[in-house]
């Protein structure tokens, strides 16, 4: 009885796996299109609610797919949607890791590693500043982020403690 939605969940997610770039935000509009207008599984408000929840839970943001899957077909739906989203791209990365290991020590892997370092640094900083620009809380968010960056660089403080302090400061100042 559950075969219909499960199969469709799988078929929706398999191609999305290869369209995911970065943190998984790239597929949200397509996921929305499939889940709300095309399949009619839930309303806009339901989808937005799941999206907000997915941003609040720890772990990859792409777990929105698991939430959608659960909403549509229970635990089986959550597992099928997650498998569809993560498995195909994972096989690709696994293959590359294998290839990489086989040529370990070769001159080209060294050049790739050295050459990618500045690209990675630019990417990470751009991602950080983009998020900072979009952060809720304006100047307070900037202050908290700057303090947290400085403490992480200069001390061995647990990030956990910093996250707690950030939440507490926002609650006290804005609450």
């Amino acid at each position: 009885m559950n075969d219909g939605p499960l199969l469709r969940l799988l078929l929706i997610h398999l191609p999305l796996s290869f369209l995911t770039v970065g943190g998984g935000q790239s597929i949200i509009s397509e996921l929305h299109r499939q889940v709300v207008p095309v399949q009619g599984w839930m309303s806009d408000a339901d989808f937005l609610n799941l999206f907000a929840l997915s941003r609040m839970t720890p772990g990859p943001g792409a777990l929105l797919s698991s939430m959608v899957g659960w909403q549509v077909a229970g635990w089986a739906g959550a597992v099928v949607a997650s498998f569809g989203l993560f498995a195909p791209s994972s096989v690709l990365v696994f293959g590359l890791a294998h290839l990489w290991r086989r040529s370990r020590g070769a001159a080209w892997t060294k050049a790739v590693e050295l050459g990618l370092a500045p690209v990675a640094a630019g990417m990470i900083l751009a991602a950080g500043f983009t998020l900072l620009q979009a952060a809720e809380g304006g100047a307070l968010a900037w202050a908290v982020a700057a303090a947290s960056t400085a403490l992480l660089i200069l001390t061995r403080v647990s990030p956990f403690l910093l996250l707690g302090a950030g939440g507490l400061i926002f609650a006290l100042v804005l609450g």
Binding site: G137, V144, A150, P159, A165, F170, A171
Partner: peptide, 16 residues
């Protein structure tokens, strides 16, 4: 609000 504060502090991880 608490989660917005947590997210702001978490940005420190990326920036660091």
């Amino acid at each position: 609000k608490v989660l917005a504060g947590v997210a702001a502090a978490a940005l420190g991880l990326s920036l660091q």
